[in-house]
């Protein structure tokens, strides 16, 4: 028995524990304060992908890949929210085929979501599957439930 392996095992368990804690506490949180982000440029890049924020009260743009399980869950959640929130629009971008936009927007993980209001203002972005309650609160605030106005 070599003690190197036991040490590596211990380190791996600690790293996994820290990563799990970080994922639980930070991943998916909507950030509204990305310092250095050029918000107008973000909107321009998203528009170049065919996003039309003026068509809905709240437009959620999701960058996804075929190998991203949480992206599928998030898409299903958005589709469900759309049935009760007619002012909500969801756009799903295949990140793999839009690498230029991915780099321009500094998308590193999938899913990464951008939230735009009708004026095209970026309300925030999030990386990792959004927390259901936070997503619902955001949608409730910007695209209230009920029949289309």
């Amino acid at each position: 028995m070599d003690s190197t392996g036991a040490v590596v095992l211990l380190v791996a368990l600690v790293v996994a524990g820290l990563a799990a804690w970080w994922l639980r506490s930070r991943s998916g949180a909507v950030r509204t304060d990305r310092a250095g982000d050029d918000v107008t440029r973000t909107t321009d890049v998203l528009r170049s992908l065919g996003v039309r924020p003026e068509d809905a009260d709240l437009t959620v743009v999701q960058f996804a890949t075929a190998f991203c399980a949480p992206c599928r869950a998030t898409k299903a959640r958005l589709t469900q929210l759309q049935t009760s929130h007619p002012g909500l629009a969801a756009v799903h971008v295949d990140a793999e085929s839009q690498l230029e936009a991915v780099r321009a927007l500094d998308v590193r993980r999938t899913p990464t979501l951008f939230y735009l209001d009708r004026a095209g203002t970026v309300l925030g972005r999030s990386s990792g599957a959004p927390r259901p309650d936070e997503l619902r609160a955001l949608v409730d605030a910007h695209a209230p439930a009920g029949p289309a106005s």
Partner: peptide, 28 residues
């Protein structure tokens, strides 16, 4: 082996898929 164990444990414990996340970074 240690790196693979971290990935496998994260997948098992919290359903996180490290490889899936790295896929986009690799493509970029």
């Amino acid at each position: 082996t240690g790196l693979a164990l971290v990935a496998a444990l994260l997948n098992a414990a919290v359903g996180f898929c490290l490889g899936c996340e790295l896929y986009l970074l690799a493509r970029r």
